[in-house]
């Protein structure tokens, strides 16, 4: 790890100020991706601004319509939350299967979506549920948050405050894990709203995205069989030693079918 200057802040305002003063600073949330990256000397921020002390970023609240999760809420807390389990069980299940127990105790929803690893789980849920990402500056619709591989709509000094998920609909998350890293080779988050289906797909392409063709088919007929005829753009799929593009495309369909069956 290259050396850097660490500072812990206690408010979002202090965090932003620290970032603005830094040469090439980074916010650190749970650090479960950032620290391994830094250990391999693949990132060299001048400053690490730790959000762990910002109390206003932690916590889960549920009202009539939404589940709001503070950006610094750990995956373990989301998974264990009876409120989340009741309101959007698929979201609790997703959180409970990120990484491993020790990683879930540190990793946070804000860190996960800000990093936007193409194989991360949360982005699929944010997209499919049509969540809103609230930052210190604005509300960003889930559909517009993820821009590209490790790239989001966030500005350098923008801090995620919370993510709000609508409670409506029946949802399921199906993940096909990379046998080595246990990240998603493909993850499909499917939500059946009263007025239609939304599908968030992670792992398959450079960036989590909505599965428009899948949605179209399922809006026609909400059955697993409806997926058979969907043609996915293989040329856009990721390919690596664990899964070719063709296999990934196939897995997107299989995971979608299984999500449909789970929602039925």
């Amino acid at each position: 790890m290259y050396n850097f200057s660490y500072q812990k802040v206690s408010s979002v305002a202090d965090a932003v100020e620290a970032m603005q003063k830094s040469e090439d600073g980074k916010f650190v949330a749970g650090g479960q991706t950032m620290l391994p990256t830094m250990k391999h000397r693949l990132a060299s921020p001048s400053d690490l601004i730790d959000l762990a002390g910002v109390g206003e970023l932690v916590g889960i609240s549920v009202d009539e319509e939404t589940v709001t999760i503070g950006a610094m809420t750990s995956h373990a807390a989301v998974a264990a939350s009876s409120e989340v389990q009741d309101a959007i069980p698929a979201l609790a299940k997703l959180a409970g299967n990120i990484g491993d127990p020790a990683v879930r105790n540190r990793g946070t929803i804000g860190g996960s979506i800000a990093n936007n690893d193409p194989a991360a789980d949360y982005p699929a849920a944010v997209i499919a549920l049509g969540a809103t990402v609230t930052t210190n500056k604005r509300d960003i619709p889930g559909d517009e948050f993820f821009i590209g591989m490790f790239e989001t709509a966030l500005a350098e000094d923008e801090v995620i405050v919370s993510v709000s998920f609508p409670k409506a609909g029946t949802a399921a998350y199906m993940k096909f894990e990379n046998p080595a890293s246990r990240y998603a080779i493909v993850g499909v988050f499917l939500v059946k709203f009263i007025d239609g289906v939304r599908v968030g797909v992670t792992g398959a392409t450079a960036c989590a995205h909505r599965g428009m063709r899948l949605e179209e088919a399922l809006n026609g007929s909400f059955t697993a069989d409806a997926i058979d005829s969907v043609e996915l753009p293989i040329e856009k799929m990721n390919a690596d030693i664990h899964a070719s593009a063709e296999y990934r495309a196939h897995l997107v369909k299989v995971m979608t079918k299984r999500a449909v069956e789970a929602c039925a």
Binding site: A52, A102, R106
Partner: peptide, 24 residues
Amino acid sequence: SQCGACVVHLDGVSVKSCTILAVQ
């Protein structure tokens, strides 16, 4: 952060001590 040989408890819960700074 895969192998878990470094797991300790921090404030009562398991963490990978190779993936947390001492200052944290």
